[in-house]
Design a binder for these strands. Structure first.
Lengths: 233, 233
DNA sequence: GAAACCCATAAGATACGACGAATTCAAGAG
DNA sequence: CTCTTGAATTCGTCGTATCTTATGGGTTTC
């Protein structure tokens, strides 16, 4: 999935990107295009394309007579899905997971409020179906099915908000939820309170109660944050 | 500023990027690398690098035997600062401005709450200084000075939140605030209520009152949204 | 006539070599 | 000690040659 074979330069990025985002090269480190090309056994053209992509992510900066210098973390385009994936796969996964969860706690309640105002009848139905699916898979170690509906639920909310920037966080949320299930709490059934909250959010959206949808979603994200605090204090 | 002379490929992007984000090519349109290279009078190598960057932004997709196809809006990396700049400079500037303001309304209150918990003494001082600067420039058409302190204020809040993803929205907020001043309401003095709110947020952060900082910031962003509603219903 | 197969071809993908341009650093002149 | 100059280095750009692959059409086959 992460390794879409989109050419040689993509293959190079799959190695070099994670190395950089993992902090393998401290900020200010210089890489030489030629050396990299040799290391990955690709032509300079391909290496240059890879460097350009890293540059567009603000991970590195290419300057004449000096080389490709790694930029400070604070300059990285941390919203780039590719960068997010790299970081989630790397060493500071916990840190990235916390950042994303905090972001969720800010965005999703507002998105839910907007969804209550803008959701189409179809989206309301979809939302209810997702919530029911979560309920149906909430007991007896059916975590795969639960996760599937959970991801779908949050995606619908974000899409129904009508804000394109919220909608684009669907993949991020999916990655966070998937990571949580596959890493941390794969063994135990989901919190019943969380399941109930999802059902209630679906209700609130259906009834166009924006304030209630927002508040309930806030409780969901607070729960997610607390869960994170327990696992990584 | 937007045209950093980072080479020929950057020059190409400065033209082609805005064209695409402005919707100049409907989704599914195909561009040929060779034709583009001819059009911009650059070598294929340079053109390929430019295409790679556009590809990393998910604006286009390059496939063999087909060409470079423009992707649907819903796939664009709308958080890429470059994409944001291009869109703000183009036709759907109002739409982009609204998306960003909604995003602000979700993020900034939470960021302010976190800032109240995590801000260093230095950041508190800086925040207070910014708020006072806003007050000092709030009357008599000193909009440049007001804007300067306003931008700094929100930057400090986002940085002090301690969340890197919030911090990276500083540039976006700066762009929104700057754009608002330079485009829409350049003529009249800022809303006194907004100025007061900023001062109060600085206070709340200094006093570690997270809930109050969050609520007050929410009022600021609500004001920004209302202002937008007045200008673009 | 429909489905499976095959090939010519168009487009990007990769490689390589040469030259240009800019920036750093050090040596030398004042 | 400062300023200038120039050489070294590394990225930047270009052009060409060749490889790879997906597509579209033509052919065969059932």
């Amino acid at each position: 999935m992460s390794t879409m074979g989109r050419g040689l330069h993509g293959r190079v990025l799959d190695t070099l990107g994670p190395e950089i985002t993992a902090g393998g090269y401290p900020p200010g480190s210089v890489l030489r295009t030629d050396e990299l090309a040799q290391r990955f056994d690709v032509s300079r053209s391909v290496m240059r394309e890879a460097v350009r992509v890293l540059e567009s992510m603000h991970l590195v900066e290419s300057r004449r007579r000096v080389g490709v210098t790694v930029r400070a973390r604070s300059e990285w385009n941390v919203y780039d899905p590719q960068v997010i994936r790299w970081r989630l796969a790397g060493a500071d996964r916990p840190h990235q997971l916390r950042s994303l969860t905090v972001l969720r706690s800010a965005v999703e309640p507002v998105a839910a409020g907007l969804a209550a105002r803008h959701a189409t009848a179809e989206q309301c139905a979809e939302l209810t179906a997702c919530a029911l699916g979560m309920v149906a898979h909430s007991r007896g170690h059916q975590l795969e099915g639960y996760l599937f509906h959970d991801v779908a639920f949050h995606r619908v909310i974000l899409n129904a908000s009508g804000n394109e920037m919220f909608a684009r966080l669907g993949d991020v949320v999916a990655e966070v939820l998937t990571g949580r299930t596959q890493h941390d709490v794969m063994f135990e059934d989901p919190d019943p309170a969380a399941v109930t909250l999802h059902v209630q959010v679906a209700e609130a959206v259906r009834e166009r109660d924006a304030a209630r949808a927002e508040e309930l979603t806030r409780q969901i994200t607070v729960g997610a944050l607390q869960e994170l605090d327990v696992l990584a204090p």
